[in-house]
Amino acid sequence: MAQAAVAMDMLEFDFWTVLFSVINILVLFFFLKKFLFGRVNAMLEQRARMVQEQMDHAEQSAIEADQLKEKREAQLQNARQEARQIIQTAQQNAQVQGDKMIAQSQSQADDIIAEAQKEIEAERLRMMDGVQVEIADLALTAASRLMRQQMNDEINRSLVDAFLSEEGAGEP
């Protein structure tokens, strides 16, 4: 009888114990949900978000660096081209300038030479004239001495001139 009573007691459902157990489990559940799963999952999410942000940031930085590099290269290319152009222009200018100067010098030299030749010619003519006059005088003196006769100066001069012209015609 006693054993049967124990068995009955063991299997007897008690409203209060069930109720308290349910309340206990619920309390534990809400506690764990808030303090274990809430905290840990919040931390995991926060970390995932941080990693995502950092990866996004790194990607952005890489893109920006690439753009900057391209820009710099383009600028360098431009600068090179500009320098080449500047050098080319300078060379052309120098060529033109040089040509001009050479031409100018050439023409100046030509002028100087021409001037000099003209002067030389004039000098020669003047000298020739002087020589002629002197020779005429000399001839006259020689002739008057030779002839020792009074002659009309003017007639004599023309005579001598004529003579000299004849003589001179034979000379180059």
Partner: peptide
């Protein structure tokens, strides 16, 4: 070991 506790868990 108390059947009421396991019953409560089973009900939930």
């Amino acid at each position: 070991k108390d059947i009421n506790v396991t019953a409560a868990l089973a009900l939930m």
